[in-house]
């Protein structure tokens, strides 16, 4: 197990380096200029100077290696300094957003809380809804509950969130006025009043996202439980007179949740990455909104850094899912 983990970690390094290069080249080749938002009243020679000041006129490989150095060496130094109060970084140049001239990691730090709150809550609620529905649907396959559950799940991932989201805003926020239309990122939960405010502004996006997540996970749970119900060990357990409840809850559930756990782990990077579309609709200034905003103004350092962190998370959670699988299912041996 340990050697497997180590080996995977070691192979992850070249993979990630390659990914970072591919992303960098992709983002760099993309059309658009960081100055497209600057009013046309700014004359061309001034624009050229602005580009030079950003460093955007350097050759692409020079910028790539500078970015690598900043990402893997300077930014961690700043991180250590912030934690321990030391001064290893000594004012070295950080990764600076072209649009706002602020370190990209500061932006990520500002954006992470709302993304984690909204998308994370939605994910948690989604899982909590999905498990019972999936299990019971499988246990009573083709019953009316299963049919309804299936329909709910199908509808959940078939109806686009930008459709439901906009309808929900129109009905509940604009017409009925129950919820705010703009997410307040400055709101801190200190008392009951601010807590209800928080709940109100989270309600719509969490509903939309949780439905979507629940739909997917409940399908996985259902098929996994179904598969186990047909196994010989279940027949054996029943044959030896074990109570139905015990068979399902203890034996079947334990075995069928193994793949579900890995699916849940694989989905976790999206929590950090933020749901781009949902954040867009509900005006939540989270990481997803930051990424889309940066793409729109060709803010390459931000796009590059955020997408790369996203890639790191995907690779990491893939590894975690594999390891979890190995721990939970003793039949799997990684040697």
């Amino acid at each position: 197990m340990l050697t497997f983990t180590l080996r995977r970690l070691l192979t992850a390094i070249p993979t990630l380096l390659l990914i970072s290069l591919v992303i960098f080249l992709l983002v760099d080749l993309a059309p658009g200029s960081p100055l497209s938002d600057v009013p046309l009243t700014v004359p061309p020679d001034v624009r050229q100077k602005m580009l030079e000041a950003m460093g955007a006129d350097q050759p692409v490989m020079v910028r790539y290696f500078l970015w690598l150095k900043q990402f893997f060496w300077i930014e961690p130094l700043y991180g250590i300094d912030a934690l321990l109060g030391t001064d290893f970084a000594q004012g070295a140049q950080r990764i600076i957003s072209w649009q706002s001239k602020v370190p990209v990691f500061q932006i990520i730090g500002e954006r992470l809380p709302q993304t984690l709150t909204v998308v994370g809550t939605a994910y948690l609620i989604g899982v909590l809804i999905a498990l019972p529905i999936g299990i019971y649907s499988a246990y009573r396959q083709y019953s009316w509950f299963d049919q309804a559950g299936t329909f709910f799940a199908m509808a959940g991932f078939s109806v686009p969130t930008f459709f439901t989201g906009n309808l929900l805003i129109l009905i509940f926020a604009v017409n009925l006025g129950w919820f705010p239309t703009i997410y307040d990122t400055n709101l801190e939960v200190v008392d009951w009043a601010s807590f209800t405010k928080m709940l109100a502004q989270m309600a719509l996006p969490v509903t939309v996202l949780a439905l979507f997540n629940a739909a997917e996970i409940s399908r996985y749970t259902r098929s996994s439980v179904l598969e186990n119900l047909g196994q010989d060990y279940v027949r054996t357990a029943r044959a030896k007179g074990m109570g139905e409840q015990k068979v399902v809850l203890k034996h079947v559930l334990r075995n069928s949740l193994i793949p579900v756990v890995t699916v849940v782990a694989l989905g976790l990077p999206t929590v950090f990455g933020g749901a781009i579309v949902t954040e867009q609709i509900f005006k939540i200034n989270g990481i997803g909104a930051a990424l889309i905003g940066a793409i729109n103004v060709s803010d390459l350092p931000t796009v590059q850094t955020v997408t790369f962190i996203f890639a790191v998370l995907i690779v990491m959670f893939n590894l975690i899912a594999d390891i979890l699988y190995g721990i939970l299912d003793p039949r799997i041996r990684y040697d």
Binding site: I19, I23, L26, V27, A30, P31, L291, I292, I295, V303
Partner: peptide, 10 residues
């Protein structure tokens, strides 16, 4: 691990 959006633009 690749982002779809920038890829499409490119």
């Amino acid at each position: 691990a690749l982002p779809l959006l920038p890829l499409l633009l490119v």
